[in-house]
Structures are given as structure tokens and as C-alpha cells.
């Protein structure tokens, strides 16, 4: 976290290193939440502008990562309030928590590259179909590989609550993809 310390003092080179180390991860976190690469890029820029301006307020340098994701999350929710993103809402899940969205049956197509693309679609639709509350903790845990403690800090909830939501999200995802696990 030497870069954080130097960037705090206004060293633009260190801030660039922080950007290079974290921007892609922040971008993908936002992308998973807003479902638009263009908006995700825009919000990533906003996030890092804020990070640069507010870096001096960061008390503990080793908590930079959850702090950064918390800023990104704030921008996501600001955007949510302004305009809900294009996604499957909680209301569109059936009684078992299954999304109404039809997932293509990739097992019928033998072409491997096509299968790969379709699997990506399946995963994407599955993540997008998760209720917002579960999706953010799932993305932060399963894709961004952040610890439960860091996720709790980012979303501002207790550790047991985050643990429960991650567990439920994992079960929901498994339910959605179970037909493709042997592909």
C-alpha cells in the first residue's frame, strides 16, 4: 500500500499504478451491476476521480480496496436512483427464485466455441437474474474474490448477514446452472 501513501501526497505516478491495478476490477464490478459496458466505464472514471480527490480522507491505507469499491457502489446506486438498469427484477423471478428469462439449452449444439459463448451467456443471465442484494455480494465474492469482511465493509452490513446472502446467492446460481455443470 505504498502507492496509496504516495498517491495521498499527490504523487500522480503512484495514483496511476493504483488505477492500473484496480480499474479493471472496478469496471467489471460496475458492469455486472449496471449491465452496460459504456455506463460502467463512465462510472469507473467517476469513481477514480472521487478516489483521487478524497484519498486524503482514507484513514487506513490497507483498507483502500474496500473503500474504493464502496465509492464505486455509491455511484452504482446513484445511477440506480436516476435510472434503473436493464436487468431482471426480483418480481420477474418465479416462486422458486427461478428467473422467467429463458436460458438457451447449449447442450444441443456441438460446436465448442459456440458452446463457450453460450455458457458465457448462461453465466451472465444467471448473474443478472439474481436479486440486486444477492448479486452485489455474489459478484464481490465469486468474481472479485474479496473476503467476506471486505464485502461487509463495502455494502455496510454485518458479516453474518453478508455470509448468509453469499450462501443464498451461490445456491441460486447453482440452481440456475445445474443443467450445465457436466457440459
Amino acid at each position: 500500500m505504498d502507492w496509496v501513501r504516495k498517491a495521498k501526497k499527490g504523487d500522480i505516478g503512484s495514483f496511476q499504478r493504483l488505477y492500473e491495478a484496480f480499474a479493471r476490477r472496478v469496471l467489471n464490478f460496475i458492469f455486472r451491476m449496471v449491465n452496460s459496458a459504456e455506463e460502467a466505464e463512465d462510472l469507473t472514471q467517476e469513481t477514480f476521480v472521487t478516489v483521487y480527490q478524497k484519498l486524503g480522507t482514507l484513514k487506513e491505507n490497507d483498507r483502500f480496496e474496500p473503500w474504493l469499491f464502496r465509492i464505486a457502489r455509491n455511484y452504482i446506486y446513484q445511477r440506480y436512483r436516476a435510472r434503473p438498469p436493464n436487468m431482471v427484477s426480483v418480481e420477474e423471478l418465479d416462486e422458486d427464485g427461478q428467473p422467467v428469462t429463458q436460458i438457451p439449452d447449449v447442450r444441443k449444439n456441438p460446436d465448442e466455441s459456440y458452446q463457450e459463448r453460450e455458457l458465457e451467456d448462461v453465466v451472465e443471465r444467471t448473474i443478472n437474474a439474481l436479486p440486486e442484494k444477492y448479486r452485489e455480494v455474489f459478484v464481490l465474492s465469486a468474481i472479485q474474490r474479496l473476503s467476506y469482511q471486505q464485502i461487509a465493509e463495502i455494502v455496510g452490513r454485518s458479516l453474518p448477514s453478508v455470509k448468509t446472502d453469499i450462501h443464498r446467492a451461490r445456491l441460486a446460481v447453482r440452481r440456475q446452472v445445474k443443467d450445465y455443470l457436466k457440459v
Partner: peptide, 26 residues
């Protein structure tokens, strides 16, 4: 299921020159 998500989720990449854009703003 975890491996499937980990191995088959799409990543988006930053557009080239994104740092320059940011640098101009800060």
C-alpha cells in the same frame, strides 16, 4: 457451479487511453 461462473463469466476491458482521459480530468 462456482468454477463454471469463474471460468465463463465475461470480462469487459477498459478502453485504450482511459488513463489519459482520467489524467486530464484530475
Amino acid at each position: 457451479a462456482a468454477d463454471l461462473v469463474q471460468n465463463h463469466h465475461r470480462y469487459v476491458d477498459l478502453t485504450p487511453g482511459s488513463w489519459n482521459l482520467l489524467h486530464a480530468r484530475i
